[in-house]
Computed example of a mutant assay.
Amino acid sequence: MSDSARTTTPFSLDAYLERIGWEGGRRPDTATLRGVQLAHMRAIPFENLDALGGRAPSLDLSDLMAKLVHGRRRGGYCYEHNTLFAAALEALGVRVTRLTARVVVGADRFEDRPRTHMALLAELPGDPRPHLADVGFGAIGSLLEPVPLTADTEFHDAGRRHRLVHAPRRGPLETWVLQAHVAGGWQAQYAFTLEPFEPSDYEMINWHIATNPRSPFSRRPYVQRLTPDTHLLLDGDRLTVTRTDDGTVTERKLSDETEARRALAEEFGIDAPAGLTLLR
């Protein structure tokens, strides 16, 4: 696709808001920012089925609208979600800076993890505090609502607990770390700086994550869906359901391809592409 075509791809705010079920205000304020992010998280699942099939998903807005908005039976992973979300926020009058982050869940050293996650910095008119906004982090420690870019302050976002802290600085830019309170303690989720990134940067990262044979997203299905009551995760052949109210976790193993496709359709609202092998 030519550069000129990419700059004129259609985005319909009305269609997007209908897809996520948002009937609230459209002013560029905190209430709208929080409400739209939560609605998006609960409406559009996280999934890596294109990458599992050996193809890097398109990040062109017209393709994202077709797949995530008009398609209704598919989702996407972080670059797809946050590219679409950024377009929606900008249509609402929010200034957006696109960021990249190192996913550091379980890492001993942050520097050992490459920048492979896309996140957003949202600035609201008249509000001196930018917010970290993110609809594409496929983990139980993900933000459900944006949080102000403020260090060492605990935030409660739709029942979850998060905070931002600073990591020791290794360069001219401050390193921020998003932490989530899970399993009884604070756990680092991802680390980022405020350096802006461009669509061309995500095109390369997206291709690497989708097609590198060492990438977890190219080797097994990884699917997440949020409801007001549960967090559902399909990781390989394991389906895990975590209750929101008390944290109760139930897990079962999917026995074969038929059961995996049924789980995607019934539990996640996803129609797996024909010919795709889910369990390997």
Rank of each mutant, 00 (worst) to 15 (best):
T8Y: 02
R280I: 00
T97Y: 02
I44S: 05
P57Y: 08
A265T: 07
G35K: 05
G126Q: 10
V96W: 01
L132E: 01
R169T: 13
G21T: 08
M1C: 08
P213I: 10
Y222H: 11
R170S: 15
N206R: 08
R6N: 05
D157H: 13
E259W: 01
I140Q: 13
D134M: 01
P221W: 12
V105M: 12
W22C: 04
S142L: 09
P45R: 09
L276R: 01
A167V: 05
T258W: 13
D201P: 08
P125H: 10
P45D: 03
E154P: 08
V249M: 13
D108H: 12
D157Q: 14
G53T: 12
A91W: 00
R170M: 06
S62M: 10
V135M: 02
A274I: 03
L194V: 10
E174P: 07
S200F: 12
W176G: 01
L173M: 07
L33K: 05
Y79Q: 04
T248W: 10
T244H: 14
H166L: 15
P45L: 11
G54K: 11
F192S: 06
I205Y: 02
G138R: 04
L276Q: 03
D271C: 05
C78I: 04
P28I: 00
L233N: 04
A101D: 09
I140T: 12
A31S: 10
G236F: 00
D63R: 07
V104K: 04
P172F: 03
M65I: 10
R220P: 00
L234Q: 01
H117I: 06
D112N: 08
D3C: 04
L92S: 06
R220W: 08
L52P: 06
G171T: 10
L239N: 04
H181K: 05
A43L: 08
G75Y: 00
G171P: 04
A188K: 09
G236V: 00
L149G: 09
G236C: 00
G184F: 05
A66V: 04
T83E: 07
F197T: 14
V96L: 06
A191C: 09
R262M: 08
R19W: 04
A43N: 05
L68F: 08
E203M: 08
D201E: 10
T230R: 12
R72I: 02
L264C: 07
L64N: 06
V69T: 04
L233K: 00
R98M: 13
G269H: 00
G75W: 02
E267T: 12
G136Q: 03
S62I: 10
N82L: 01
G35T: 03
E18H: 11
G21W: 01
L276Y: 06
R161V: 13
D50A: 10
D237T: 05
G269T: 01
L149I: 08
I205D: 02
A43P: 06
G185T: 15
M41N: 14
A5D: 15
G184H: 09
I205K: 01
P125C: 07
L38D: 00
N206P: 01
R163W: 07
M204W: 15
M1G: 12
D201S: 11
T242K: 09
I140A: 11
A139I: 03
G138L: 12
